[in-house]
Design a protein around this nucleic acid. Sequence first.
DNA 1: GTTGAGCGTT
Length: 250
Amino acid sequence: MSHFGRSGPPDIADTYSLLILNISFRTTADDLFPLFDKYGKVVDVFIPRDRRTGESRGFAFVRYKYKDEAQKAVDKLDGRVVDGREIGVQFAKYGPNAERIDKGRIVEPVSKIKTRARSRSPRPRCRDEYRDRDYRRSRSRSRRRYDRDRYRDRERSYHHRSRSYSASPDRRRDRRSSKFDDEDRSRSGSYTSSSRSPSKAKYERSRSPNQRPSKHESPDVRNGERDSQLHRDVPSGRPANSPSASPRSP
DNA sequence: GTTGAGCGTT
């Protein structure tokens, strides 16, 4: 894809692809085009993106029309700081169009002796390659680590919240059904007073005296208050399950 | 809103 108005690769018959590495995740083809176009005729700029997230994968391909210009771009832009990151520019080697590009790029005579001289496959890549591809496509390693941490955090949060929910959601909703915000506000007040004078509030609410929220107190109390405020400020916010929205009944 | 070695789309 490119912003050249064409869907798919242009005529890459006589183009020379450059691989741009270490670009910022926010860098787009529009950002790279003017930069590379200064050194020659840029045919296309393509930034592979994640199919799921749609975000940049951190590298791009710039196709030049002429090799000397591409080489000049490599020479000039390699190591250049773009969008706060030092990019790496080099000739692309792999890819769906690598062969055709190699044809114009003068195929290396290496493949006849070097790789053959080893008398074995260049690399023991069978499905490891796909794994690697999927690995890269899937996400970067740090990303995985981040997801793992986030998942752990979310799990913990869920656990934490579930325990909080099992403390009072049923009664709150039930009470809300029977009575009005007055009670809810009262409950909220009891919570607030609980932090100030936890003498009778907890006993009235019949909450376990030993269930003293230590650090979890802040979010719970805040949620309760915010919830009550939300209902007070916007009484018609929930017409579906808000009986107080229709105060009058025949 | 996060991250950082590498090789690509209709």
